[in-house]
Amino acid sequence: MLAFVIRRIMQSAAVMLAVALIAFLMFRFVGDPVNQMVGVDTPQEEVARLRESLGLNDPTIVQFGRFIGNALRFDFGVSYQFRQPVTRLLAERAPATLELAFTAAAFALVVGLIMGVYCALRRDSWLAQLFQAISLIGVSLPTFLIGILLIYLFAVVLGWLPSNGRGQVVKIGDWWTTGFLTTSGLRALVLPAITLGLFQMTLIMRLVRAEMLEVMRTDYIKFAKARGLRTRSIHFGHALKNTLIPVITIAGLQLGSIIAFAIITETVFNWPGMGLLFLKAVQNVDIPIMAAYLMLIGLLFVLINLLVDLTYGLVDPRLRIAMRS
């Protein structure tokens, strides 16, 4: 087990190194950072001095080494547009994105699972057919359109929920702010979370349905029925547990993309998160923020993958053996 974990961590480190290389190359090839920092009338010697002090004259490999060293200390330099450390900018906005992403993921997982199980067990009921039809819409409609439709319906026409922002937030500890503790914060969370989670929800629903139908056809379910076990136990014990194995992988990986794709939802709802920050950075060629964001998303994906692999062992006893060897 330990060897398995260590091996996976090494692999993760290699992936992160590759991501870092791409992030670093952005500095080299997407415009000259010095031009972004100095004014038009800055004297040439001043520019040269700045270039030297930033280490831009060193060999590329040395610069890359320095980038890695800084990244390990969570130092991604200073944002060109805000003149503030990138890490602090991201940390300020991380709670908004993470709260949105986890709410969306929880929504997608819980609702998707319930609907999927229902569709598998009551395959021919009209409600199951309706869920199937809705899931097609969820899979095919683009996120921004869903967001705009939801805003139109619930914010403009019905006026039930706010259309943008995070509502009132409460500060917890040094840097975390949460919208979970105020009514306006919770209300503001509803529409963005549904928008962000809808695609994943339909995906999970369809996956759970397909997997569960598959499991219900297996011999061990037939044997469980032949033993006269209670239907509830067969459906929600024997069948569901086996259904969840592939669902864990997909749901885990989807959490990464929920965080990454929060960009669009944050834009639609003017949500003050990392995605919105990233989009502004792209518009203003603010490379340090772009690089840091890239590294952060890469790290999230790698960590989630690692966690998913480790959870397998908890759910499936057969893999514990495979991990040990």
Binding site: D219, A226, R227, K241, P317
Partner: peptide, 24 residues
């Protein structure tokens, strides 16, 4: 019928490799 299954009538399947739930 469920109450009879397992209690009065039991069944043994062909493939023991797939008849048992792997997670239990």
């Amino acid at each position: 019928l469920r109450r009879i299954r397992g209690r009065k009538i039991a069944m043994i399947f062909q493939d023991p490799l797939t008849s048992l739930n792997p997670l239990y």
